[in-house]
């Protein structure tokens, strides 16, 4: 499976984090939302990001893939400071970072399968679109019978799974997921969590933002996960009591 051949890449860089935030602050017009954040996501690690609504989880994730630039400090993705990246370099970086948004957006005029394969299409790898990997991936997320449908026809859970499939089709090194279980029932959130845990076992670095503590507890039994908690504009490594 395409998702497999990553662990070998990972062993090349041991001490540097895949994503590193150093004294990062971010302020919107009103005031500082995040301040003095220093976090390092090691290769192959599994992190939860938690905190109350509006604490800045989404902002934190956006800082991690260059959708927002920090107002202070440095964010390094694969060793490169996002502030110094050209727009094309940002595009290339995003091919190695799979992102699942809370409100997933698709190209509504293309089929679900085409949407999942979109990262391949835009990076000029058309020939792989028709390859076996896409079918395998659709099976993995359980959307085989939805492949030819259009995204607006999907349910909330199906949208999240399609987004996850789209996020990992390029075999990225990192998967960032923002409340992927926000709009789905418990069973579905378990399924999504299982998919993310599987990805992590294949060597992907996973950062999963959620305010659902029971999801975190469920995960802790299966994977060695760290919990980052945002409170008072700062990120702390939560204790083992969760």
């Amino acid at each position: 499976m395409m998702l497999r051949h990553n662990r070998s890449n990972k062993s090349n860089r041991t001490d540097t984090g895949v994503i590193e935030l150093e004294n990062v602050a971010y302020s919107y017009g009103g005031g500082e939302l995040l301040s003095d954040i220093t976090v390092k996501l090691a290769p192959g690690s599994f992190h939860f990001l938690t905190g109350p609504s509006g604490a800045g989880k989404t902002t934190f994730l956006k800082l991690c893939y260059g959708a927002l630039l920090p107002t202070a400090g440095h964010v390094r993705v694969f060793g490169a400071d996002v502030r110094t990246l050209e727009r094309d370099q940002v595009a290339l970086m995003r091919r190695k970072v799979g992102v699942v948004h809370q409100d997933v957006q698709f190209l509504d005029h293309l089929s679900v399968a085409d949407n999942v394969a979109l990262p391949l299409t835009v990076s000029g790898r058309h020939d792989e679109v028709a390859g076996p990997d896409l079918g395998e991936l659709m099976t993995w997320v359980g959307l085989t019978d939805r492949a030819t449908g259009l995204p607006p026809e999907l349910s909330g859970g199906e949208r999240q799974r399609a987004a996850l499939a789209r996020a990992v089709i390029m075999s990225p090194d990192v998967v960032l997921a923002d409340e992927p279980t926000g709009n789905v029932d418990w069973d579905m959130s378990q399924r999504l969590l299982q998919l993310l845990i599987e990805l992590n076992r294949m060597g992907k670095t996973v950062l999963l933002a959620t305010h659902d503590l029971s999801l975190i507890r469920a995960a802790k039994a299966q994977v060695q996960a760290r919990v980052l908690r945002i409170s008072n504009r700062r990120v702390q490594l939560a204790g083992a009591d969760l």
Partner: peptide, 16 residues
């Protein structure tokens, strides 16, 4: 605009 945001998110370059 939404299409462009999705394309940027999945790693499309500006020229593409």
């Amino acid at each position: 605009a939404q299409v462009i945001r999705v394309l940027r998110l999945v790693g499309a370059t500006d020229s593409y």
